[in-house]
């Protein structure tokens, strides 16, 4: 009787790189199409919400509404980029294209395939963030010298959403299943995670949920600090503490989902 490989902790080597590289190669084949949504979307949001909605909401906490939502757009593109890459994208590769099966027949193991996919999801999120950053810069909405530090935040925030998406992929019986996490988790987050509307305006229970369990809130907060240099005060905590807390929250939750996604995927793929 051999030990089931499921219970073992992830075994990862440098080979993860080859899986990541495969996805980069595919992405670069059609990069101009892939970058397009990241350029168009923030422009549309800035026009609709910034100019349109912004005429009613002239100012939030001392800055223009457009300036206030710009960092939120970076956070949103991180979430969408990573989550959709590792749900729909990974599911297609796993289920329809059988790409994972093909790779597992080589010296690469399941753990490395999943890690490579998740790291790729994080990379895509970072690409997206860089483009949105360029768009909001073009609109003159960056006012902090720390703005480039959003890229590592995008990577680790992306890692969190990629691993979360991959965990759903491991559980998905079919591709339509992704409607559930998309509409029950991603869309609510898109709306209430301090992205378009200040969290402080929501009932306190909702604020607690947003801060406690919704990852996007923390990414949006960090984004706002790094791009426009402002921090929401959180129960009397100093700005430094708020930032540190957000960084830790993202790091810990990302690590948990990273390991979980590998575990769940092994359970699905190793019969």
């Amino acid at each position: 009787m051999t030990t089931p490989s499921l219970s073992r902790k992830p075994r990862l080597t440098y080979r993860v790189w080859t899986v990541w590289r495969r996805n980069l190669d595919v992405f670069m084949k059609t990069w101009h199409v892939n970058f397009l949504p990241s350029i168009i979307e923030p422009i549309l949001y800035l026009l609709a919400f910034g100019f349109g909605f912004g005429t009613f909401v002239t100012e939030i906490e001392g800055i223009s509404y457009m300036q206030w939502i710009a960092p939120g757009l970076v956070a949103i593109t991180v979430m969408y980029g990573a989550f959709f890459e590792c749900t729909y994208g990974s599911f297609v590769r796993m289920y329809y294209q059988r790409t994972f099966d093909a790779i597992i027949a080589t010296p690469i193991n399941v753990d490395e395939v999943i890690a490579g996919e998740v790291l790729w999801g994080a990379t895509r999120a970072t690409f997206n963030a860089a483009i949105v950053l360029a768009v909001i810069a073009a609109f003159g909405l960056i006012s902090s010298p720390l703005f480039l530090a959003i890229l590592p935040v995008a990577f680790f925030g992306g890692l969190l959403f990629a691993a979360l998406g991959m965990s759903f992929t491991a559980l998905a019986p079919n591709i339509d299943f992704f409607n559930y996490p998309t509409f029950l988790l991603i869309t609510p987050m898109f709306l209430i995670s301090n992205t378009f509307i200040p969290l402080a305006t929501f009932p306190s229970q909702l604020q607690t949920i947003a801060l406690g369990v919704l990852p996007l809130t923390h990414i949006a907060d960090l984004s706002r600090v790094l791009i426009v240099g402002r921090v929401e005060s959180l129960g009397g905590l100093s700005p430094e503490w708020v930032m540190l807390l957000a960084v830790f929250w993202i790091a810990i939750v990302a690590a948990v989902f990273f390991v979980l996604s590998i575990y769940l995927m092994k359970r699905r793929l190793i019969k």
Partner: peptide, 22 residues
Amino acid sequence: EDNLDPDFTVLKNLQVYARYFN
């Protein structure tokens, strides 16, 4: 079953596969 990589050309399929073997 056919698990060739549909995202790549014929040649690239072999090259990408070679990379998995280092």
